[in-house]
Design a protein around this nucleic acid. Structure first.
Length: 433
RNA sequence: GCGGGCGUCGCCAAGUGGUUAAGGCAGUGGCUUGUGGCGCCACCAUUCGGGGGUUCGAGUCCCCUCGCUCGCCCCA
């Protein structure tokens, strides 16, 4: 029988990798706590309509990337492709937005049916932040600052923050008309992809990777020129806020986000050290979404960061430092035993060590029944700091042999014969002595 | 959905038409029924992702398929 494999684009996280994930999660939690942001957890499965209405029918995410199916009650269900729509739905459903501004974060798996490549999988993980009910440009600044500080704290370098303003929906409508007219006038000189997008999503043409198209675009009307005085003023205040916090950014007038709900501030944090999928964190303002999903008019801003891409960067950073990979769950103590009495004794002592008051120890018991030298070899490889040797003699007279595993160590010279009670009473410092 | 590259043991990896599929790491057993990063010995792929074809003969050539990977599109 052939062994089964995971589904394409669905990735197992093996023990060698999980410490990176735990570190990111712990750091994120800490930053959110310090910024008074509360966690919200929503279902992985939602009605398809939520995403269709929230993200936009015409977007790629909704048009071709959703994991959708009908359940046994003929409901149209979709595995969430992003977090914002669900969070907004939950906040409306439970009256959160009616209770005043909300500062929320979430984390977990998202699903998009795309061709996997570096930094992109079908099941991937995001951590996201959503501020609901704040219109002030300072909320944009704070949201971005939290993301920036988190990434910096994780030790990721080579990051850059790119910023743009998409203006109000009126601004965009006006600009869109101007842009389409201009693009139509230059249609023959555009690459085929961009020609397509004149009708499907003209703003995206600005983002084209075709060099000739980019050259041509130098003469196109810009979004910045199309901003109303009010939008312009708002964007200025966001920029000033970031400058006041000494968070470096570059203006990118071509930055256009792919989900329909974004307006005004849009930003991405990218890394030069990733492949083609260089965006680590992306977000912006989405003032119309809450109302569009049936809630009261509520301004909002948020972002999401891609865990896999962050893990990629942390891996690279570690390799660059040549850091040695230590077992993630190395025990303090490795218990080696021999003989019927000794083995029984080992189980009892291991449990006492794990549950002793004061300094509980992380203990691994060798369960192989192999010879003592084999067990000691494994003890060393486990990364444990000490080994405990237990045989029938020790079991009979209530003693243990304690052996430090790292450091110089001559043959057998360093092990200590202790009574059980003495051993259990040793503090971590005394163990090292 | 569209391109490019790749698929030999858990991991790394030789081998490019002629059979006995190297080697290293890890693993298991032993030398050693109780003592340290070793060392030595043994075991560890009837089979080269899968299927079909060409050939006297295929891991090696051809076709199909699956998977991985990088890129496009798009996004975190």
């Amino acid at each position: 029988m052939k062994p089964l494999q995971s589904l394409r684009g669905m990735v197992d996280l093996l023990p060698g990798q999980t410490p990176f994930w735990q570190r990111i999660e712990a750091t994120a939690r800490d930053h959110f706590r310090r910024a008074a942001v509360e966690e919200i957890r929503t279902p992985l499965l939602e009605l398809t309509e939520l995403f269709a209405r929230g993200i936009g029918e015409a977007t790629d995410v909704v048009g071709k990337e959703m994991y959708s199916f009908e359940d046994r009650g003929d409901r149209h269900c979709t595995l969430r492709p992003e977090g914002t729509a669900s969070v907004v739905r939950a906040a409306i459903q439970h009256g959160l937005v009616a209770q005043g501004p909300q500062r929320l974060w979430y984390g977990g798996p998202m699903f998009r049916y795309e061709r996997p490549q570096a930094g992109r999988q079908r099941q991937f993980h995001q951590i996201g932040l959503e501020f609901l009910g704040h219109a002030d440009p300072r909320s944009d600044v704070e949201a971005i600052a939290i993301a920036w500080d988190l990434l910096v704290d994780l030790g990721v370098d080579g990051l850059s923050l790119e910023l743009n303003s998409l203006g109000s929906s009126d601004d965009r409508l006006r600009y869109r008309a101007d842009l389409v007219a201009w693009l139509e006038a230059h249609r023959e000189r555009l690459d085929p992809d961009s020609q397509q997008r004149i009708t499907t999503n003209p703003l995206r043409v600005l983002d084209s990777k075709n060099p000739e198209t980019q050259d041509l675009l130098a003469g196109a009307p810009t979004l910045a020129e199309a901003l109303s005085g009010e939008s312009h003023e708002r964007f200025l205040r966001v920029r000033q806020g970031l400058e006041a916090l000494a968070i470096p950014f570059t203006l990118n007038p071509r930055l256009v986000r792919g989900l329909d709900y974004y307006g005004h501030t849009a930003f991405e944090i990218t890394s030069s050290q990733l492949g083609a999928q260089a965006t680590v964190c992306g977000g912006g303002r989405y003032d119309g979404l809450v109302e569009q999903l049936g809630g009261p008019p509520t301004p909002a801003v948020g972002w999401a960061l891609g865990m896999e891409r962050l893990v990629l960067l942390l891996n690279q950073a570690q390799q660059a430092q040549g850091a040695e990979q230590r077992p993630g769950a190395a025990p303090d103590l490795y218990v080696v035993s021999r003989g019927v009495q000794g083995e029984a004794h080992a189980m009892v002592l291991a449990r006492r060590c794990r549950h002793r008051p004061g300094d509980p120890l992380a203990v691994q018991v060798d369960l192989s029944g192999a010879g003592v030298d084999k067990q000691l070899k494994r003890a060393r490889r486990s990364g444990a700091r000490w080994a405990l040797l237990l045989g029938d003699e020790e079991a009979a007279n209530g003693t243990v042999r304690l052996m430090p595993l790292h450091g110089e160590g001559g043959a057998g010279s360093a092990d200590r014969l202790l009574s059980q009670a003495e051993f259990l009473a040793l503090s971590l410092d005394q163990l090292n002595a």
